[in-house]
């Protein structure tokens, strides 16, 4: 495993901190320039989570909160690979996911949308990528929901993803959207991403080859984390 510093993050590809279309970002965006920090071990290393961290139902949101039946909604499988910018698989990546239920309602004290809670759906799951970077989990397709930003803003259906790579510099939180959802192109949070091609990287296509017939459809979502330099030719000054 090469353990060098990470490729510089392309900040123009990511959403800027400040975007007045997403109102909450206005007072939560740093206004001074970020200070460049050459990766040290503190950034090149990161926590490692073994498969023993996981319980047997962690990757199955259909069953991991089920009480007296299974949750209502469209049964889906989300699968894909975690890769780095050199298209190398990232094994051992912990992926945590969370989402609203089929009606668009979150299980959270601060949630105020009138769609009902589903007693059999918790809305959180996690998994770890395999040796080839692949991962999968099973869930219910989340519903879209309204949110207080503009007077009539709706989030497209989405699943939140938190990913740990091999170095803390790769830490990433993002969201997955579903192919064909017209709300994607109306959403102020999606629109914080400046480049249409970058947005499309977060839209998972329907993957009919991987459905389970008469049970669940599949969506394919690949995740790319930052790549890293080979340590071979890295400049090291005298004295270490």
């Amino acid at each position: 495993m090469s353990g060098g510093s990470f490729y510089q993050r392309d900040r123009r590809w990511h959403p800027p901190a400040y975007d007045p279309g997403y109102k909450t970002s206005v007072t939560r965006s740093p206004q001074k320039a970020l200070i460049a920090l050459d990766n040290t071990l503190s950034e090149m290393t990161g926590p490692v989570f073994g498969h023993d961290t996981l319980g047997p139902l962690d990757d199955d949101m259909i069953l991991n909160f089920a009480k007296d039946g299974e949750p209502i909604g469209q049964r889906i499988i989300v699968h894909g690979r975690v890769l780095d910018e050199d298209a190398r698989p990232v094994p051992g990546a912990l992926i945590e996911v969370w989402q609203a239920n089929a009606g668009g309602r979150y299980r959270h004290k601060k949630e105020s949308y009138l769609a009902p809670l589903d007693p059999n759906f918790g809305g959180c799951g996690r998994t770890i990528s395999g040796p080839d970077g692949s991962y999968r989990f099973r869930t219910i397709k989340p519903g879209p929901y309204p949110w207080p930003n503009g007077p009539n803003d709706w989030r497209p259906a989405h699943i939140h993803f938190s990913i740990f790579g091999q170095g803390f510099a790769q830490r990433l939180i993002t969201q997955m959207y579903f192919e064909g959802d017209p709300l994607i192109w109306l959403c102020p949070i999606v629109s914080t991403i400046p480049d249409k091609a970058a947005i499309e990287r977060l839209i998972a296509p329907l993957d009919m080859a991987n459905t389970v017939p008469m049970d669940a459809r599949a969506y394919k979502f690949d995740i790319v984390l930052r790549g890293r330099r080979s340590t071979l030719f890295e400049n090291r000054m005298e004295g270490n």
């Binding site: 590809w13 970002s25 910018e85 969370w98 959270h108 809305g123 939180i173 999606v190 991403i193 977060l202």
Partner: peptide, 22 residues
């Protein structure tokens, strides 16, 4: 160069705790 672009970030949103500290 055959490089991929990093997946773009999105906000963790108000319900990050459901997934990260359930």
């Amino acid at each position: 160069l055959d490089r991929l672009k990093e997946s773009p970030s999105q906000t963790a949103g108000p319900y990050v705790h459901i997934g990260c500290t359930p």
